[in-house]
Design a protein around this nucleic acid. Structure first.
Length: 374
DNA sequence: AAGACGTGGCC
DNA sequence: TGGCCAAGTCT
């Protein structure tokens, strides 16, 4: 037991470890102690469900089995493998971090949490998770699961987004972690995963399985009968939406695509797309986009007809309207801006190459469904 | 230091 | 069905 550990903390620690050893799920990244593989899993798992991550994780390790292989890959290849996982900045940061490791650390991965956190896309949670799981460093983790577990276990009734509340949770997590035996190797990683596993399997958001909980006897929220009302969340925000129009524009057997700048869906490719301003028709928006973006090549947008001046330069074969975006965006920031200003690259690609590009899921589905009909 | 950043599954 | 939720990080 750590020097200042309470009996309760030790009981919580030991109860969790014993439960975890019996009930841990057999997940792909738990079969490995390769720090690169564990790091990969932690990045993919950010705000993303285990079941969603598994196939991506396995495909990724086949394509990029080592940090060097990832560092050598192109960003397009990286984003294609990430396509559909969301939060694409994770992929770009992970790729950049691999290049930092390859070029500035001679291929040597960090070991301590402090070193890990210097890499792009690695915050306090991921740094501590990798350092504890892959290197047995005695640092705690606090993620969404741990916040929920601790809020109930300690009956924390302040919002879990609150700064001081989060800070106190890191302290509590550390105290319980250190209440375990310091002699047993591998315990920090097992303990941290046990906390998260409990939150994922037992101490779930709705209808937690307290009868199966290894630390129910220590749970202050349950003792007070308030565990199901915890954790307290901050106010919810409105999710804005925007309507977009996109066009399938071809020329000489190739289709026009643009690559998005960093930010929303950064680095992904898409058909020429523009937001529809309030009061504007889809056709007007499309005309505005085509004029601005393709002024040199296309005179007027015309559905299904050749467009251009004296010779056919491009054809608007299909127009996708009402591509409704329900992610959190700031539509007004994009309204009226020509596509050329919103893309870091524009190019004409063959159909086969189009299929290899990383596209936003909504656009990939639209294109597939629409082209299948014709 | 709030807000941006994706997607799919659940009830 | 629409809102909520899921192993966070960056600015």
């Amino acid at each position: 037991m750590g020097a200042h550990a309470t009996k309760r903390d030790a009981a919580i620690h030991d109860g969790l470890i014993a439960w975890y050893r019996r009930h841990a799920r057999d997940l792909p990244w738990r079969r490995s102690r390769d720090p690169y593989a564990i790091w990969l899993s932690e990045v993919m798992l950010q705000q993303t469900r285990v079941e969603t991550v598994i196939p991506y994780y396995e495909r990724w390790l086949e394509a990029f089995p080592t940090v060097q292989a990832l560092a050598d890959a192109s960003e397009d290849a990286v984003l294609k493998l990430w396509e559909g996982l969301g939060y694409y900045r994770r992929a770009r940061n992970f790729h950049r971090a691999a290049q930092v490791v390859a070029n500035e650390r001679a291929g040597q991965l960090p070991e301590t949490a402090e070193q890990w956190q210097t890499l792009p896309g690695v915050g306090r949670y991921t740094a501590s998770a990798v350092a504890s799981i892959a290197f047995d460093e005695a640092v705690p983790v606090v993620d969404g699961n741990v916040k929920r577990v601790l809020a109930r276990l300690e009956r924390i009734e302040t919002p879990t987004d609150d700064r001081e509340t989060v800070a106190s949770m890191w302290q509590r997590a550390e105290a319980i972690l250190l209440a375990g035996s310091v002699k047993e190797p591998g315990t920090p990683g097992a303990f941290n995963q046990a906390m998260m596993e409990l939150g994922a399997r037992i101490c779930v958001p709705r209808r937690p399985s307290c009868l199966l909980c290894p630390v129910a006897a220590s749970c202050r929220g349950r003792a007070a009968g308030v565990h199901e009302t915890l954790p307290i969340k901050g106010p919810k925000r409105v999710v804005p939406h925007a309507d977009w129009v996109s066009a399938w524009i071809t020329r000489g057997g190739r289709v026009l695509v643009g690559q998005r700048p960093p930010g929303l869906l950064g680095g992904l490719w898409e058909l020429p797309t523009t937001t529809v301003a309030p009061g504007e028709t889809d056709a007007d928006a499309l005309a505005r986009m085509v004029r601005a973006d393709l002024a040199a090549d296309v005179a007027e947008p015309s559905h299904g007809k050749a467009v251009g001046s004296d010779q056919t330069i491009a054809t608007v074969d299909h127009v996708f309207t009402h591509l409704r975006v329900t992610i959190r965006v700031t539509p007004l920031a994009l309204v009226g801006k020509p596509v050329a200003q919103r893309h870091v690259a524009l190019k004409w690609v063959r159909r086969a190459e189009f299929d290899t590009l990383a596209l936003p899921v909504a656009m990939r589905k639209l294109v597939r469904a629409s082209l299948a009909k014709r």
